[in-house]
Design a protein around this nucleic acid. Structure first.
Length: 685
DNA sequence: AACTGTGGCAGGATAC
DNA sequence: GTATCCTGCCACAGTT
């Protein structure tokens, strides 16, 4: 495959391919890995002990090793023993009457593993262990961990904090397709392994010993499985990113994709003997942008076509395969090729936006580093590794390795454009980022014009996609052929919708041939909408699946909605719900003091703080709407009987109207009849 | 002094 | 990275 891939290429480029191939073919190392999780005593359940002070004893430590080790070390305390039958299977439990002995045993075990895994170990488990050991008079030389800048490392090996790894946006979005949204051990394990933490009703400090062991062991096991489960997928991904980026394991698992790409590009520069420019020098020559349009934005982005509201049957979605990276390859866009200083380039090409205006010029004398990297990854990914990942003649283990190889490349390809628009990236080049989006706009608007010339009806489009209403196969093929030839970009049919409902930009519902449903952007999908409203939304979507092109079919949907809303009303009125059902979930994106306006989740967070609970940026605040002056309360401080029913009816209305309006159904039509109906029923009961 | 309406903006979440 | 949606705060003006 490699020979085929590099056929006809110049010697130098062939060598690049060969060198990369080695990185992808070399088997991953299999070090001894140990997952560690600790539980700490705390007098106040809601308060997490400060790891700098480490004032309270470590009451339990669970260890799960790649060699099958399953051990829990517990401290003997005055608590219930609990049910011995609830102890996890295949696990050794040792009870210590000295915390010092417990920690020393832990340190001894840690010493025989190369890779230590934790979830949140950088900010809690390991600093706590270090400081607790010091407090107990254990010498530093006996403690296997040490703090280095913003991480905690293992003296004889490496430490991977999975919280930090899964927190990396590129990992979350590209490698796992946004499968998990909240970054807790429980939510990530549920999403990736289908397993959950052990549920406990009370804090760990008062938990019966056997339950504590079970709870602790599960956490360590989940931590280990997140790395070694699914055919060691995560471990392999880490290894591949290390090889591609030329970074160590502790950096790769803690730094963002821009750091990986930086490292890769620095390496490439050095191997070719190029000078690495200063950021300020790039900015001085290539910093000028011409499309700074909106407040807070540095350059213009993509085009979103205003959808024609309504319900459409038989709609085909076309899209460009990784549009931005492909544009960078075809137009040779790289920080060193865009807007070269006068006299340094013989062959220049114009970068035009959708209006034909020339924004920048690109040098075509030589291939830029970025396009070269992208095209190598793309070639390998499409022509080699996607195929090998599906090759039935290979062992399952090998196929899954190749699948990780292709997804590692995907991460680098997808991130290749964004980093150049990021101020802190060492190769930050505004004119480059602006050129990519301008060409993107040019490509999509030209494609719309060509589609219309073939008599195709464009219903909607966003950045790199076009939704075509009931296209004739011939016109469709003509469009695809003409556009691929004109731009040298791959455009293909992505999917067909049996029917699709449009209302607003970035908001639609489409039902595919197999009755699976795509819901984009609608409120009912967002995490900040309470569960109780989401479930009504889901019911209405179910009804939409079966819709046919007839008025009676719309009536059926109307009835279903009415029924769902009625149930919601009754539930709310009877307060037949849990606080979780009505909770809004919002992320606290910064420190409380940094907020300019006090939104509901900020207000709720402040109440939690006043109550003595820690709140940090990144925390998801759960709050409910209550009657009275405060209007909101954090879920921990609220009671069911304070819930403000009207607020929930309001949010149900706005959420469902997004589905109803395109069907020509008004809310009043449903709620008007409903309130009378409820009134009569209410009297009846 | 308390309330109501309004437009601008902050903030969160999503699409691509 | 930008584009877009929705909610709710906030300042201000006008009314009771």
């Amino acid at each position: 495959l490699l020979a085929k891939l590099t056929e006809g290429l110049p010697e130098e480029k062939r060598r690049y391919f060969e060198e990369f191939a080695e990185l992808f073919e070399e088997k991953p190392p299999e070090p001894r890995i140990l997952a560690v999780d600790i539980e700490v005593y705390t007098p106040v359940e809601t308060r997490v002990p400060d790891p700098e002070e480490a004032p309270y004893p470590v009451i339990s430590v669970a260890l799960a090793g790649s060699d099958g080790l399953r051990r829990v070390l517990v401290l003997a305390r005055q608590v219930e023993l609990g049910n011995l039958r609830s102890l996890p299977e295949g696990c050794t439990v040792e009870v210590f009457d000295s915390e010092r002995a417990l920690l020393l045993e832990l340190f001894r075990v840690v010493g025989s593993y190369n890779v230590i895994l934790t979830f949140n170990g950088d900010s809690f488990d390991l600093p706590y262990l270090i400081n607790r050991a010091l407090n107990l008079g254990i010498g530093r030389e006996l403690i296997p961990f040490e703090v280095v800048e913003d991480l905690v490392t293992v003296k004889h090996g490496v430490h991977i904090d999975l919280y930090r790894f899964f927190d990396i946006e590129a990992i979350q979005n590209y490698a796992f397709g946004s499968a998990y949204k909240e970054k807790t051990l429980d939510t990530i394990a549920r999403a990736l392994l289908g397993e959950a933490k052990v549920e406990i009703e009370v804090g760990v400090s008062v938990l019966p010993l056997c339950d504590l062991v079970r709870y602790n062991m599960r956490d360590a096991e989940l931590t280990l499985k997140l790395v070694l489960g699914n055919g060691k997928m995560v471990w392999r991904l880490i290894v591949l990113i290390m090889r591609i980026s030329k970074m160590g394991v502790e950096e790769v698992t803690r730094r963002r994709v821009s750091a990986w790409i930086k490292s890769l590009l620095f390496w490439e520069h050095r191997r070719r003997g190029y000078l690495i420019p200063n950021q300020s020098d790039i900015l001085a020559i290539k910093g000028e942008v011409k499309t700074a349009s909106k407040l807070g934005k540095r350059f213009a982005g993509a085009i979103v076509i205003d959808p024609v509201p309504g319900v459409y049957f038989n709609t085909t979605v076309l899209d460009f395969a990784s549009l931005y990276p492909s544009i960078m390859v075809v137009w040779n866009l790289s920080y060193e090729t865009v807007d070269p200083p006068p006299g340094l380039c013989r062959k220049l090409e114009d970068v035009r936006d959708e209006s034909g205006r020339i924004l920048h010029r690109v040098c075509m004398d030589f291939e830029g580093v970025t396009p070269q990297m992208i095209s190598i990854f793309r070639e390998f990914r499409v022509k080699v590794y996607k195929k090998l990942a599906k090759d039935r003649t290979l062992s399952e283990d090998l196929r899954s390795w190749y699948d990780v190889v292709q997804s590692a490349m995907k991460v680098f390809i997808n991130a290749s454009y964004g980093v150049f628009g990021h101020v802190s990236f060492p190769f930050y080049t505004p004119s480059l980022a602006e050129s990519v989006t301008a060409i993107g706009r040019h490509v999509i608007t030209s494609t719309v014009r060509i589609a219309e010339r073939y008599g195709l009806r464009v219903l909607y489009g966003d950045t790199d996609s076009l939704f075509l209403w009931n296209p004739g196969p011939e016109s469709l093929n003509n469009l695809i052929r003409e556009v691929s030839e004109k731009f040298k970009l791959e455009i293909e049919v992505d999917k067909n919708y049996k029917h699709v409902v449009f209302a607003l930009k970035k908001n639609y519902v489409g039902v595919k041939e197999d009755s699976s449903v795509d819901i984009k952007g609608l409120m009912g999908k967002k995490r900040n909408v309470p569960e109780i409203v989401k479930s009504v939304f889901t019911q209405v979507v179910e009804a939409l699946k079966s819709i046919e092109p007839s008025p009676s079919s719309v009536d059926v949907v109307k009835e279903r909605v009415k029924e769902s809303v009625r149930t919601l009303y009754v539930k709310l009125k009877n307060r037949d719900l849990s606080l979780e059902d009505v909770a809004y979930k919002n992320e606290l994106s910064k420190e409380l003091g940094e907020y300019k306006s006090e939104g509901p989740h900020v207000k709720a967070a402040k109440m939690l703080l006043a109550y003595g609970r820690q709140v940090r940026p990144g925390d998801i605040i759960y709050y409910v709407k209550v009657r009275g002056r405060e209007k909101v309360k954090p879920i921990q401080l609220a009671r069911i009987d304070e819930i403000d029913i009207d607020e929930y009816v309001k949010v149900a209305r706005s959420t469902l109207e997004q589905l109803l309006a395109p069907l020509g159904v008004s809310w009043d039509e449903i709620a008007g009849a409903l309130s009378l109906d409820l009134y009569v029923r209410g009297r009846g009961s």
